[in-house]
């Protein structure tokens, strides 16, 4: 019974995920695309929960939904309504055909590669303990096994912050000069 529930939840989440992804790609108004992405991110968080990744799910919602998407929406609002033409408005072109083919090929390959290379590993899901995916487990992993990744990631964030300030301040000087 529990399994059946999980399946239902999974299907809903997966369907929402895909639908919102397609919506992102096909809306002409960037604002709607951003909103669709929020939906995508939320359904992904649900999927993470199914996979016992509670901390990651929380992080997904907080970071992506709370920070990244907010930034996106701010910028889209700031830049005004520059509506793009939908990609298939000019009729089928080499770009579209090529893109669809390439996308399909990548999809097929992902499935094939993982299926071929993973081998026997894919058939035996491991048992996990109660603390799997908990903040305590992740924190311990971060600060012992993956300390370097932790520190480097923090540097990346620092650089990004500095970069954002620099990009923003240049623009301000430019606009001050013009004004």
């Amino acid at each position: 019974m529990a399994n059946f529930l999980v399946w239902v939840v999974w299907f809903f989440a997966a369907f929402a995920c895909l639908a919102s992804a397609l919506a992102v790609v096909s809306f002409s108004n960037p604002f709607y695309s951003a909103l669709a992405l929020i939906g995508n991110l939320a359904s992904l968080a649900v999927l993470y929960l199914v996979l016992s990744g509670e901390f990651v799910a929380a992080g997904q919602v907080l970071v992506y939904g709370g920070a990244v998407m907010v930034m996106f929406l701010f910028v889209i609002a700031y830049l005004g309504d520059r509506t793009d033409e939908s990609p298939w408005s000019g009729g089928p072109s080499w770009q579209i055909v090529g893109a669809i083919l390439a996308g399909g090929a990548i999809l097929a390959e992902v499935c094939v590669v993982v299926g071929l290379k993973a081998g026997g590993l894919l058939s035996k899901p491991q048992h996990i303990g109660r603390s799997f995916g908990s903040p305590e487990a992740l924190g311990r992993a971060f600060l012992t096994d993956h300390l370097l990744a932790f520190e480097v990631t923090s540097i990346v964030l620092l650089v990004a912050a500095v970069g954002g300030v620099v990009l923003g301040s240049h623009a301000r000087q430019e606009s001050d000069a013009r004004a």
Partner: peptide
């Protein structure tokens, strides 16, 4: 840029097959 990206994606697809 878009055609360059297409070239990237196409190349990725082909190379994966080759390596496989």
């Amino acid at each position: 840029v878009r055609s360059y990206v297409l070239a990237l994606a196409g190349g990725l697809a082909v190379l994966t097959v080759v390596f496989l």
